[in-house]
Design a protein around this nucleic acid. Structure first.
Length: 284
DNA sequence: TATGAGACCTGCCCGC
DNA sequence: TGCGGGCAGGTCTCAT
């Protein structure tokens, strides 16, 4: 279930593998995973055929490949999405299921694809979006997202929480408020800030907001460094797992002892998501 | 306009 | 051992 740390780690792992490389062949095995923003006619063009990768961008949980000619392909991994770089031998050996889109790429001078970039997504909660340029992608999609959680300022967090009446959990999960947080890191941040997930943002004291801001920034930074949390499906661009799951304080630990106070962690659905908290450390 | 609830989807786990 | 049901969760759509 890739959230901001997993997508940022994926972006960093793909940069040295893809930057300056050219997509010689592309294939799309499921058309319903592709959304086109103003790229109606040529499917191959929409999928970046012949393009040379200029940059990889990220906003929240979204990743975008920008070509030297301006074309853009945005990727959302959903719950089970993977964006893998494989050698020709690995691609043939692994016979990947649910490989919805495949690009063959190599150095522009070679004219011979040496590697495969594979988008696979068994549960199909993710997808790819093509756009003629970054401006179109930003205007039609990314502008609807809140600020990226890694660059979130204390002042902005305080401002966007002040008017909200729903629960903290629901507010922090809302990508239009803050982009990048998902179920794992919201639970971890609320535990670190000692805030109960069902509290309303409007009930927070200024020091609560300060603690929450520090918790979000610290946890995300540590998670990015650790390569993210591999719970089930997540792998980075090289097919490697992240190690941050071993450092989770609450997520996935319902019924176990709190690592701070030994109280048994509780679990309940909040904002339609399984939520784990410590009733002692995170008292309402 | 803001918020909550349901649907989508499939692999995994557990109980029978 | 095999089958069936429940669970997991990010985003979109619809209802309130």
């Amino acid at each position: 279930m890739p959230e901001l740390p997993e997508v940022e780690h994926l972006r960093r792992s793909l940069v040295p593998l893809l930057l300056g490389k050219q997509f010689f062949h592309v294939s799309l095995n499921r058309e319903d995973i592709l959304t086109r923003l103003g790229v109606k006619r040529n499917l191959q063009l929409a999928l970046l055929k012949d393009g040379v990768v200029r940059a990889l961008h990220r906003c929240g949980k979204n990743l975008a490949l920008e070509m030297c000619d301006g074309r853009v392909l945005a990727v959302h991994l959903g719950m089970s999405g993977q964006f893998l770089v494989l050698s020709a031998g690995e691609y043939k050996d692994r016979a990947l299921t649910h490989a919805h889109a495949v690009w063959q790429f190599g150095a522009p001078s070679q004219k011979t694809p040496a590697h495969y970039l594979v988008f696979r997504d068994p549960r199909r909660f993710g997808g790819i979006t093509s756009a003629p340029n970054m401006e179109t992608l930003m205007r039609l999609r990314w502008s609807k997202l809140g600020p990226d959680a890694l660059s979130l300022t204390h002042e902005f967090l305080a401002a966007c929480l002040i008017s909200k009446v729903r629960t903290l959990k629901a507010t922090l999960l809302d990508q239009s408020v803050i982009a990048g947080l998902g179920n794992i890191y919201v639970d971890e941040a609320l535990f670190a800030a000692r805030l109960h997930p069902t509290r309303t943002p409007a009930s927070l004291e200024p020091e609560d907001v300060l603690h929450l801001h520090q918790a979000i920034r610290t946890i995300l930074a540590h998670a990015v460094s650790a390569g993210g949390s591999s719970i089930r499906d997540y792998l980075d661009g090289k097919g490697e797992r992240g190690s941050y799951a071993t450092r989770h304080q609450v997520y996935g630990r319902a019924g176990e002892a709190c690592r701070r106070c030994e109280t048994t962690l509780e679990s309940e659905a909040v904002a339609q998501r399984t939520t784990v908290w410590c009733p002692q450390c995170q008292a309402i």
